[in-house]
Simulated scan of single mutants.
Amino acid sequence: MHSNRVKILIIRFSSIGDIVITSPIVRCVREQLNAEVHFLTKEKFQGLVDDNPFISKVHTLQNNLDETIALLKNENYDTIIDLHKNLRTAKIKKAMNATWYSFNKVNIQKWLFVNFKINFLPQEHLVDRYFKGISALNVINDKQGLDYFLPPEFSFDLSSHNLTKGKYIVLSIGGTYTTKRIPNDILLALINRLNKPVVVIGGGEEDSKNATYLEQHSSNKSLTNLCNKLSINESAYLIQNAAKVVSGDTGMMHIAAAYNKPIESIWGNTHPLFGMYPYFPKKTENLSNMHQVDLKCRPCSKLGSSSCPRGHFNCMKLHNVEEIVKNCNSIEGIQ
């Protein structure tokens, strides 16, 4: 029997940062519509939303899309909010007897910016485009920013790594694409100039190899390498208790924004104008410093690439390390 409470499915399959960015929609839909909110994502990202108190149930995408659709049909949703918007979500929406809403992906504007450097992109964050997409629901942005929730029973001992809350800087070196990863020479120059304890995080073999290189060649005696040794939640906890976060255009950058951490974001071939910069809608103080190299060839991709199309990778290699160091070393209360 269907209750009087409206039942809403929100869809975002991947990845870390993109899912974290959906959190204001989840929160506002739940609170303003008193809705029962379900979330559909890939199994590997389920942990990102499992402990969100605004989500009543998490569904995972099956290998067979028809199986997923059959399971979702049993829920009798009133509304679907599609925050992924691809062929699979189109098939899901077509199969369901529910009103649906989505958002403008501004793909034409992105294509013009990448290929001809003509900028017709809206001057707004992706979160704000999401809210425009569901405006007919009369749900408004509460300007409370992003959320990231750890399990109630979660624990992590900072002292086991000789770390103290608020006394270290997290350096996130990961990235799905090569052109979004900070090169080792830039990372090493940064680490060696910092006068603070630094914790390196990341995941996967490539990040682990790079972190080992940094550990072996760094002169910073307060460097802690936790790369490929932590879960996403453990990395999030480290970020939550850090003094500052230095990151490329990655999911960890958005988790840092969810915890209102000061962020030094280092951009490569992607661009903040795509709407995926650190989201601080209500903060009057400047928590976000976005470092970019002004090049005629940038951006050369909206997502990232396996290599620099022109071979020089100057969008990363020419960053002003001293400026980043100055911002990090100016944090009060850290030694």
Rank of each mutant, 00 (worst) to 15 (best):
I11G: 11
A70E: 05
L194D: 02
M253R: 03
L230A: 04
Q335H: 12
L87A: 12
K42T: 03
G175P: 03
K91A: 10
I263Q: 10
E153A: 15
V6A: 15
H161W: 01
V106G: 00
M290D: 06
A95L: 00
V26M: 01
K302P: 00
R193C: 12
Q62A: 15
F120D: 10
L146D: 02
Q32C: 03
R30M: 09
I16R: 06
K283D: 03
S135C: 04
I169R: 08
V200A: 07
K73H: 05
R5Y: 00
D294Q: 15
K143N: 13
V293L: 13
P151N: 06
I92C: 01
N76D: 04
P122H: 10
L137R: 10
S219G: 12
P151T: 07
I25Q: 05
L112V: 00
D147T: 14
R88Y: 13
R129H: 02
F103I: 03
T250P: 02
P24L: 03
F280S: 07
H38K: 03
G174D: 00
S15G: 15
F131I: 13
N97M: 04
M1R: 12
N138R: 07
I201L: 05
N4K: 15
I8S: 09
N74K: 15
Y130A: 09
H125F: 01
K165H: 08
G17D: 04
M290E: 14
N107Y: 06
V293P: 02
G251T: 13
T60S: 07
L187Q: 07
E285A: 14
A243K: 09
V170H: 08
G304P: 08
M96N: 04
I173V: 05
N141E: 14
L238W: 12
N241V: 15
I140M: 15
K209Q: 12
G47W: 14
S14K: 14
L137M: 09
H2W: 03
S301G: 04
L126H: 06
N225E: 05
F149I: 12
S219I: 02
G248S: 14
V293W: 08
R30F: 11
M316A: 10
P262W: 01
L295M: 08
K73V: 04
F45R: 06
I81E: 12
I21G: 02
I108E: 10
S56F: 05
V37H: 05
S305L: 14
R310H: 04
I69G: 01
V58P: 00
H254F: 11
I108G: 00
I169C: 00
Q109Y: 00
S306N: 15
K93H: 05
K180Y: 01
A189M: 09
D78A: 15
G311I: 06
S14P: 06
I55P: 07
L223Y: 13
K132G: 11
R181W: 09
P122A: 11
T250F: 11
N115A: 02
E332D: 09
V37Q: 03
N184H: 13
N233L: 11
S3V: 08
Q216A: 09
G333N: 10
T250A: 13
